[in-house]
């Protein structure tokens, strides 16, 4: 019995959905960023799965790029979150609408 690509992609899709649900449901910037990480990972899983089923390395290479982008994004986003927190003593995303203007 071998592992099929559809199973891997299904897993990736559901993981992506879980991340999206967290992103929409949470108001805390911290959890929103965490949910985004989950979605990144889901995308990575899909890439790696396809790569494995084709027997080629390209998908894994893309995973590394996704990894780099996620790492850079999370560092900047967390720094922004901290600045926002320093300013308004909260990390509630709905409060961030007062940033305008």
């Amino acid at each position: 019995m071998t592992l099929g690509l559809p199973e891997v992609l299904t897993f990736a899709s559901i993981l992506f959905g879980v991340g999206a649900a967290g992103l929409l449901a949470r108001r805390s910037l911290l959890f929103m960023l965490a949910s985004i990480e989950v979605m990144f990972v889901a995308g990575g899983v899909a890439f790696v799965g396809v790569s494995a089923s084709l027997g080629q390395a390209d998908g894994q290479v893309v995973f590394f790029f996704v990894l780099a982008a996620a790492a850079a994004q999370v560092s900047v986003a967390l720094a922004l979150m901290l600045r926002f927190h320093a300013q308004s003593r909260t990390i509630d995303a709905d409060r961030a609408s007062s940033l305008r203007g």
């Binding site: 071998t2 592992l3 099929g4 690509l5 559809p6 891997v8 992609l9 299904t10 990736a12 899709s13 559901i14 992506f16 959905g17 899909a46 799965g49 396809v50 494995a52 089923s53 084709l54 027997g55």
Partner: peptide, 14 residues
């Protein structure tokens, strides 16, 4: 997403 990935087939072996 699952529906979109339905055409994909194949196995992960090696």
């Amino acid at each position: 997403l699952i529906a979109a990935s339905r055409p994909a087939s194949g196995a992960v072996e090696e």
